[in-house]
Amino acid sequence: MIRARAARALPPTLLLCALLGAWELYVQASQTSAFVLPAPHSVAAALWDNAGLLAGNLAPTAIEVGLGIAAALVLGFVLAVGVHLSPLLRRAVYPLAVGSQAVPIAVIAPLLVFWWGFGIVPKLAVIVLICFFPVLVTTVDGLMASDPEQLKLLRTLDASRWQAFRFAELPAALPAAISGARIALTIAVIGAYIAESQTATTSGHPGLGREINADLTALQTPRAYAAAFVLFAFAIACFYSLALAERWLAPWAAHPRERGAGA
Protein backbone atom coordinates (compact mmCIF):
# COMPACT_ATOMS: atom_id res chain seq x y z
CA MET A 1 0.00 0.00 0.00
CA ILE A 2 2.61 2.49 1.11
CA ARG A 3 4.97 1.20 -1.56
CA ALA A 4 2.29 1.63 -4.22
CA ARG A 5 1.64 5.17 -3.07
CA ALA A 6 5.34 5.97 -3.10
CA ALA A 7 5.60 4.54 -6.62
CA ARG A 8 2.77 6.80 -7.77
CA ALA A 9 4.40 9.88 -6.26
CA LEU A 10 7.66 9.12 -8.02
CA PRO A 11 6.97 10.48 -11.56
CA PRO A 12 5.75 13.94 -10.47
CA THR A 13 8.62 14.16 -7.94
CA LEU A 14 11.18 13.31 -10.60
CA LEU A 15 9.66 15.79 -13.03
CA LEU A 16 9.68 18.51 -10.37
CA CYS A 17 13.34 17.80 -9.54
CA ALA A 18 14.26 17.91 -13.23
CA LEU A 19 12.48 21.25 -13.71
CA LEU A 20 14.09 22.72 -10.59
CA GLY A 21 17.49 21.49 -11.74
CA ALA A 22 17.06 23.03 -15.18
CA TRP A 23 15.92 26.29 -13.58
CA GLU A 24 18.95 26.36 -11.26
CA LEU A 25 21.32 25.67 -14.15
CA TYR A 26 19.69 28.33 -16.28
CA VAL A 27 20.02 30.97 -13.55
CA GLN A 28 23.66 30.04 -12.89
CA ALA A 29 24.59 29.93 -16.56
CA SER A 30 22.78 33.09 -17.67
CA GLN A 31 23.74 35.17 -14.60
CA THR A 32 20.14 36.41 -14.42
CA SER A 33 19.63 38.91 -11.62
CA ALA A 34 17.84 37.57 -8.53
CA PHE A 35 15.41 40.48 -8.86
CA VAL A 36 14.24 39.06 -12.15
CA LEU A 37 14.51 35.33 -11.56
CA PRO A 38 15.80 34.00 -8.22
CA ALA A 39 17.42 30.57 -8.27
CA PRO A 40 15.53 27.67 -6.67
CA HIS A 41 17.99 27.47 -3.79
CA SER A 42 17.35 31.11 -2.84
CA VAL A 43 13.59 30.56 -3.12
CA ALA A 44 13.96 27.53 -0.83
CA ALA A 45 15.96 29.66 1.60
CA ALA A 46 13.29 32.38 1.50
CA LEU A 47 10.67 29.71 2.12
CA TRP A 48 12.57 28.44 5.14
CA ASP A 49 13.34 31.88 6.59
CA ASN A 50 9.80 33.19 6.15
CA ALA A 51 7.86 30.04 7.01
CA GLY A 52 5.95 31.78 9.80
CA LEU A 53 5.07 34.80 7.70
CA LEU A 54 3.98 32.68 4.74
CA ALA A 55 1.89 30.35 6.93
CA GLY A 56 0.27 33.39 8.50
CA ASN A 57 -0.57 34.72 5.06
CA LEU A 58 -1.74 31.34 3.76
CA ALA A 59 -4.49 31.28 6.41
CA PRO A 60 -6.60 34.22 5.10
CA THR A 61 -6.01 33.11 1.49
CA ALA A 62 -7.10 29.56 2.28
CA ILE A 63 -10.21 30.87 4.02
CA GLU A 64 -11.01 33.05 1.00
CA VAL A 65 -10.55 30.10 -1.34
CA GLY A 66 -12.62 27.78 0.87
CA LEU A 67 -15.56 30.13 1.38
CA GLY A 68 -15.34 31.54 -2.15
CA ILE A 69 -15.35 28.14 -3.80
CA ALA A 70 -18.24 26.98 -1.60
CA ALA A 71 -20.31 30.00 -2.62
CA ALA A 72 -19.28 29.59 -6.27
CA LEU A 73 -20.27 25.90 -6.28
CA VAL A 74 -23.67 26.70 -4.81
CA LEU A 75 -24.26 29.58 -7.22
CA GLY A 76 -23.00 27.67 -10.28
CA PHE A 77 -25.00 24.58 -9.40
CA VAL A 78 -28.24 26.41 -8.61
CA LEU A 79 -27.95 28.47 -11.80
CA ALA A 80 -27.28 25.31 -13.81
CA VAL A 81 -30.36 23.59 -12.44
CA GLY A 82 -32.44 26.70 -13.12
CA VAL A 83 -31.07 27.04 -16.64
CA HIS A 84 -31.73 23.35 -17.27
CA LEU A 85 -35.30 23.38 -15.99
CA SER A 86 -36.34 26.69 -17.52
CA PRO A 87 -35.65 27.55 -21.18
CA LEU A 88 -36.59 31.13 -20.36
CA LEU A 89 -33.93 31.31 -17.67
CA ARG A 90 -31.48 29.71 -20.09
CA ARG A 91 -31.99 32.40 -22.68
CA ALA A 92 -31.86 35.14 -20.05
CA VAL A 93 -28.95 33.99 -17.87
CA TYR A 94 -26.53 32.15 -20.14
CA PRO A 95 -25.28 35.08 -22.28
CA LEU A 96 -24.85 37.23 -19.18
CA ALA A 97 -22.94 34.48 -17.39
CA VAL A 98 -20.59 34.19 -20.37
CA GLY A 99 -20.16 37.96 -20.52
CA SER A 100 -19.42 38.14 -16.80
CA GLN A 101 -16.19 36.24 -17.46
CA ALA A 102 -14.89 39.09 -19.62
CA VAL A 103 -15.39 41.82 -16.99
CA PRO A 104 -11.94 42.97 -15.78
CA ILE A 105 -11.99 42.74 -12.00
CA ALA A 106 -10.20 46.10 -11.73
CA VAL A 107 -13.28 47.77 -13.18
CA ILE A 108 -15.63 46.59 -10.46
CA ALA A 109 -13.14 46.33 -7.57
CA PRO A 110 -13.72 49.90 -6.31
CA LEU A 111 -17.45 49.27 -6.25
CA LEU A 112 -17.00 46.04 -4.29
CA VAL A 113 -14.84 47.83 -1.71
CA PHE A 114 -17.31 50.73 -1.61
CA TRP A 115 -20.11 48.28 -0.81
CA TRP A 116 -18.38 45.83 1.51
CA GLY A 117 -15.24 47.54 2.82
CA PHE A 118 -11.79 46.05 3.42
CA GLY A 119 -12.90 42.68 4.83
CA ILE A 120 -13.25 39.29 3.21
CA VAL A 121 -16.60 39.90 1.46
CA PRO A 122 -15.38 41.79 -1.63
CA LYS A 123 -12.66 39.15 -2.08
CA LEU A 124 -15.24 36.39 -1.95
CA ALA A 125 -17.29 38.27 -4.54
CA VAL A 126 -14.33 38.30 -6.92
CA ILE A 127 -13.62 34.56 -6.42
CA VAL A 128 -17.29 33.67 -6.90
CA LEU A 129 -17.45 35.75 -10.08
CA ILE A 130 -14.44 33.91 -11.50
CA CYS A 131 -15.29 30.41 -10.28
CA PHE A 132 -19.04 29.90 -10.71
CA PHE A 133 -18.69 29.74 -14.47
CA PRO A 134 -16.96 26.37 -14.99
CA VAL A 135 -19.41 24.80 -12.53
CA LEU A 136 -22.35 26.30 -14.41
CA VAL A 137 -21.18 25.15 -17.84
CA THR A 138 -20.16 21.60 -16.89
CA THR A 139 -23.30 21.03 -14.80
CA VAL A 140 -25.60 22.27 -17.55
CA ASP A 141 -23.85 20.01 -20.06
CA GLY A 142 -24.05 17.07 -17.64
CA LEU A 143 -27.76 17.61 -17.10
CA MET A 144 -28.39 17.87 -20.84
CA ALA A 145 -26.43 14.68 -21.47
CA SER A 146 -28.66 12.41 -19.41
CA ASP A 147 -29.88 9.38 -21.34
CA PRO A 148 -33.22 10.11 -23.05
CA GLU A 149 -34.12 6.42 -22.78
CA GLN A 150 -33.78 6.62 -19.00
CA LEU A 151 -36.09 9.63 -18.96
CA LYS A 152 -38.54 7.69 -21.12
CA LEU A 153 -38.47 4.84 -18.63
CA LEU A 154 -39.17 7.22 -15.77
CA ARG A 155 -42.10 8.67 -17.72
CA THR A 156 -43.69 5.24 -18.10
CA LEU A 157 -43.31 4.82 -14.34
CA ASP A 158 -45.20 8.12 -13.86
CA ALA A 159 -42.23 10.02 -12.45
CA SER A 160 -42.87 13.72 -11.92
CA ARG A 161 -40.50 16.30 -13.42
CA TRP A 162 -38.82 16.56 -10.03
CA GLN A 163 -38.47 12.78 -9.68
CA ALA A 164 -36.98 12.49 -13.16
CA PHE A 165 -34.49 15.14 -12.11
CA ARG A 166 -33.70 13.48 -8.81
CA PHE A 167 -33.49 9.86 -9.96
CA ALA A 168 -31.87 10.30 -13.38
CA GLU A 169 -30.65 13.74 -14.41
CA LEU A 170 -28.98 14.82 -11.19
CA PRO A 171 -26.91 11.66 -10.60
CA ALA A 172 -26.02 11.58 -14.31
CA ALA A 173 -24.76 15.16 -14.11
CA LEU A 174 -22.82 14.74 -10.90
CA PRO A 175 -19.49 13.55 -12.40
CA ALA A 176 -19.50 16.48 -14.85
CA ALA A 177 -20.41 18.90 -12.07
CA ILE A 178 -17.53 17.58 -9.98
CA SER A 179 -15.14 18.08 -12.91
CA GLY A 180 -16.36 21.66 -13.07
CA ALA A 181 -15.78 22.00 -9.36
CA ARG A 182 -12.21 20.79 -9.80
CA ILE A 183 -11.52 23.39 -12.47
CA ALA A 184 -13.19 26.03 -10.32
CA LEU A 185 -11.19 25.05 -7.25
CA THR A 186 -7.94 25.31 -9.14
CA ILE A 187 -8.66 28.75 -10.56
CA ALA A 188 -10.04 29.85 -7.18
CA VAL A 189 -6.44 30.02 -5.99
CA ILE A 190 -5.43 32.46 -8.71
CA GLY A 191 -8.84 34.09 -8.14
CA ALA A 192 -7.82 34.76 -4.55
CA TYR A 193 -4.60 36.37 -5.77
CA ILE A 194 -6.54 38.62 -8.12
CA ALA A 195 -9.06 39.43 -5.38
CA GLU A 196 -6.34 40.38 -2.90
CA SER A 197 -4.48 42.45 -5.48
CA GLN A 198 -7.57 44.42 -6.43
CA THR A 199 -9.23 45.05 -3.08
CA ALA A 200 -7.41 46.57 -0.13
CA THR A 201 -7.07 44.92 3.26
CA THR A 202 -6.40 46.31 6.71
CA SER A 203 -5.58 43.15 8.67
CA GLY A 204 -2.05 42.15 9.77
CA HIS A 205 -1.82 39.06 7.56
CA PRO A 206 -3.28 40.31 4.29
CA GLY A 207 -2.96 37.02 2.41
CA LEU A 208 -0.45 35.50 0.01
CA GLY A 209 -1.57 37.62 -2.94
CA ARG A 210 -0.92 40.88 -1.11
CA GLU A 211 2.35 39.43 0.19
CA ILE A 212 3.52 38.60 -3.32
CA ASN A 213 2.70 42.07 -4.61
CA ALA A 214 4.39 43.76 -1.63
CA ASP A 215 7.53 41.61 -2.05
CA LEU A 216 7.73 42.34 -5.78
CA THR A 217 7.47 46.07 -5.12
CA ALA A 218 10.14 45.80 -2.40
CA LEU A 219 12.42 43.77 -4.72
CA GLN A 220 12.12 40.79 -2.35
CA THR A 221 11.75 38.56 -5.37
CA PRO A 222 12.83 35.26 -3.70
CA ARG A 223 10.14 35.72 -1.04
CA ALA A 224 7.54 36.46 -3.72
CA TYR A 225 8.56 33.21 -5.40
CA ALA A 226 8.36 31.40 -2.09
CA ALA A 227 4.82 32.72 -1.57
CA ALA A 228 3.92 31.70 -5.11
CA PHE A 229 5.26 28.24 -4.35
CA VAL A 230 2.92 28.01 -1.34
CA LEU A 231 -0.01 28.89 -3.63
CA PHE A 232 1.23 26.27 -6.10
CA ALA A 233 1.28 23.54 -3.45
CA PHE A 234 -2.05 24.68 -2.03
CA ALA A 235 -3.76 24.45 -5.43
CA ILE A 236 -2.46 20.91 -5.93
CA ALA A 237 -3.68 19.86 -2.48
CA CYS A 238 -7.14 21.34 -3.15
CA PHE A 239 -7.43 19.59 -6.50
CA TYR A 240 -6.63 16.15 -5.16
CA SER A 241 -8.79 16.47 -2.07
CA LEU A 242 -11.73 17.08 -4.39
CA ALA A 243 -10.80 13.97 -6.38
CA LEU A 244 -11.20 12.04 -3.13
CA ALA A 245 -14.60 13.66 -2.62
CA GLU A 246 -15.62 12.50 -6.10
CA ARG A 247 -14.94 8.88 -5.22
CA TRP A 248 -17.31 9.30 -2.31
CA LEU A 249 -20.02 11.34 -4.07
CA ALA A 250 -20.17 9.53 -7.41
CA PRO A 251 -18.59 6.09 -7.00
CA TRP A 252 -20.26 4.77 -10.19
CA ALA A 253 -18.31 7.29 -12.24
CA ALA A 254 -15.06 5.61 -11.22
CA HIS A 255 -16.18 2.40 -12.94
CA PRO A 256 -16.13 2.09 -16.71
CA ARG A 257 -19.09 4.01 -18.04
CA GLU A 258 -22.46 2.33 -17.85
CA ARG A 259 -24.49 2.47 -21.00
CA GLY A 260 -26.95 -0.34 -20.38
CA ALA A 261 -26.33 -3.81 -21.75
CA GLY A 262 -28.23 -5.96 -24.16
CA ALA A 263 -29.91 -5.07 -27.41
Binding site: E149, L157, D158, S160, A172, H255, A263
Partner: peptide
Protein backbone atom coordinates in the same frame (compact mmCIF):
# COMPACT_ATOMS: atom_id res chain seq x y z
CA UNK B 1 -42.76 -0.69 -20.51
CA UNK B 2 -39.82 -3.01 -20.31
CA UNK B 3 -37.58 -1.85 -23.11
CA UNK B 4 -34.99 -3.89 -24.99
CA UNK B 5 -32.15 -2.21 -23.16
CA UNK B 6 -32.46 -2.80 -19.44
CA UNK B 7 -32.08 0.90 -18.56
CA UNK B 8 -30.89 0.18 -15.05
CA UNK B 9 -29.66 3.35 -13.37
CA UNK B 10 -25.94 2.89 -12.69
CA UNK B 11 -26.00 5.03 -9.55
CA UNK B 12 -28.46 2.71 -7.78
CA UNK B 13 -27.91 -0.85 -6.58
CA UNK B 14 -30.04 -3.71 -7.89
CA UNK B 15 -32.79 -3.45 -5.26
CA UNK B 16 -33.07 0.30 -5.66
CA UNK B 17 -33.48 -0.17 -9.41
CA UNK B 18 -36.13 -2.85 -8.95
CA UNK B 19 -37.95 -0.66 -6.42
CA UNK B 20 -37.85 2.46 -8.62
CA UNK B 21 -41.59 2.48 -9.35
CA UNK B 22 -42.38 2.09 -5.65
CA UNK B 23 -40.11 5.02 -4.81
CA UNK B 24 -41.80 7.11 -7.51
Amino acid sequence: LMAQRDMLLPWFDAVENAALALRI
